Amino acid sequence: MRCVWCRNDVTADSGISSLFMWNSRPICRQCQNLFHSLEKEPICPGCGRLMEEETLCYDCIRWKEMDSYFPMNQALYHYDEQAKEFMERYKFIGDCAVAFLIKEDLKKVLKKYIKQGYTICPLPTSKQSLEKREFESVEYILELSKIPYQQLFQHIGKGKKQSEKTREERMKLQQPFVLKEKVKLPTKILLFDDIYTTGKTIRLAAKLLQDKEIEDIRLFTVFR
């Protein structure tokens, strides 16, 4: 058996004691804690960015100056070079097996929100990206983690992918979502996405819900 991340043989040399099986996917001991957890780190309370001290980052200060509506974002991991490689392999190459690396941590955190009555709502992929990728990358992570969710949005955005845009282009993003027709909106919603970069996409989704007078809206991303 080979580790889903490093592809090393985890049974031949190390033996079964170094092998972790999550839904029949092997992960070697070395790759168990691959990502930098933000759980016990000083972070920006607005977006979850890793900070030297727990205070609002410059981006969040500017956000609050632009818009008084400012739901908080929690992130699971710091978006470092290891995380960038993960997203490249998972989202753009389509190596879905690597998603098992974040499955257990994600399940643990999101179940706390579910117990508090939140409905998890993932952000959908654009039509262009879905045709190229052939799977809903954000929804798949939730399905893998056995986290129930409700899709409230339809993606109507066009043009370049967010990953291909400069920061300036990202900040000029127009509303890429509409609410699905005849959808019944929950009273407590946790918007879920993979990466918080500028925050523009997930905050536009939150704004759409605020316009429907949903007061209890929180944000959650895997990486920040």
Score class of each variant (00 low, 15 high):
K132G: 02
L123E: 04
S129K: 14
M72I: 12
G94D: 03
A97W: 04
A99E: 05
Q154N: 06
S137T: 15
Q150M: 13
W63I: 02
H155L: 09
P124A: 12
F135S: 04
D80R: 08
R89A: 02
E104Y: 01
N73E: 09
Y69S: 14
F153I: 03
I141F: 05
F92M: 13
Y79S: 07
T125H: 07
E85L: 07
W63H: 10
K64R: 15
H155V: 10
Y79Q: 06
A99S: 10
C121K: 15
K103E: 08
L144E: 08
K107R: 15
K91M: 11
E136Y: 11
I147N: 08
E131C: 01
M72W: 08
W63F: 10
R89N: 02
Q74C: 09
P122G: 08
L130T: 01
S126L: 06
S137E: 02
A99V: 06
L101T: 09
S126A: 13
E88I: 04
F92D: 14
K91H: 14
P124L: 13
F100R: 08
G117P: 13
E65C: 04
E85G: 03
E85F: 03
V98C: 05
I120F: 01
E131F: 00
K84C: 11
C57H: 03
Q154H: 07
A75I: 07
K103H: 07
C60N: 12
D59R: 06
Y69P: 13
Y113Q: 02
A75V: 01
P71V: 09
F135N: 06
K108L: 00
K84R: 09
I102E: 05
N73D: 15
C57S: 11
Y118C: 13
E85I: 09
I61A: 08
K111M: 15
P122I: 15
S129Q: 07
K112G: 12
V138C: 14
E85C: 02
